[in-house]
C-alpha cells in the first residue's frame, strides 16, 4: 500500500514537472540556433517579391543569415532597434529587428557598412522582408 502511494506521488510529481516545464519552456534561442539559410538581402527580397506565398512556405519561422549593406539604422522604436538592409528595389529593404538589450551594438553600426545578420523570418510587410530576434554574425 505504502509503495503504491509513493509510486502515485512520484508519478504526479513527474507529470507536474513536465507540465511546469512546458508551461515555462524557454523561447527559441535564435542567436544560438544554426541558420537554415544563408542569403543576400537582395536575393532574399527578390525571392519574396517574385512569389510571396512560396517564399513564405520556404522561409517563415526559419533562421536566416542575411548578408547585405546597411541602408539605415532605425532607432525610433526603443523596444526594437532595427537595421535595414539595401535591396535592388528602392525603398524596399530587409528589415532586421533586434532585442532592446542589443541597442549599444546596433548603435555602433553605420549606413553602407557590410554586415551579416541572423534572425527569424516573419514574412513580407509593406516595406520589404522582416526578420526579428536578430543578432550580428561576426
Amino acid at each position: 500500500m505504502v509503495k503504491k502511494i509513493i509510486l502515485f506521488i512520484i508519478i504526479i510529481g513527474i507529470i507536474g514537472a513536465i507540465v511546469m516545464y512546458l508551461w515555462n519552456k524557454p523561447h527559441r534561442d535564435i542567436a544560438a540556433a544554426k541558420e537554415d539559410f544563408i542569403i543576400s538581402a537582395t536575393d532574399f527580397y527578390k525571392e519574396y517579391s517574385a512569389n510571396e506565398t512560396s517564399a513564405n512556405a520556404k522561409y517563415l519561422d526559419k533562421v536566416i543569415a542575411v548578408e547585405g549593406v546597411i541602408s539605415a539604422i532605425e532607432l525610433e522604436n526603443a523596444d526594437e532597434p532595427t537595421v535595414a538592409l539595401i535591396t535592388a528595389t528602392p525603398d524596399m529593404t530587409v528589415s532586421c529587428g533586434f532585442k532592446k538589450e542589443l541597442l549599444s551594438e546596433v548603435k555602433k553600426l553605420k549606413p553602407n557598412d557590410k554586415i551579416k545578420i541572423k534572425g527569424k523570418c516573419d514574412g513580407m510587410g509593406m516595406f520589404g522582408v522582416v526578420i526579428t530576434q536578430c543578432s550580428l554574425i561576426k
Binding site: W23, N24, K25, D122, M126, V130
Partner: peptide, 15 residues
C-alpha cells in the same frame, strides 16, 4: 493602411 506581421508578436511565455 496598417500592416502587421503576426509572427512578429512576442509573448513572455514561449508556449
Amino acid at each position: 493602411v496598417i500592416e502587421v506581421l503576426i509572427k512578429s508578436f512576442r509573448f513572455k511565455k514561449a508556449l
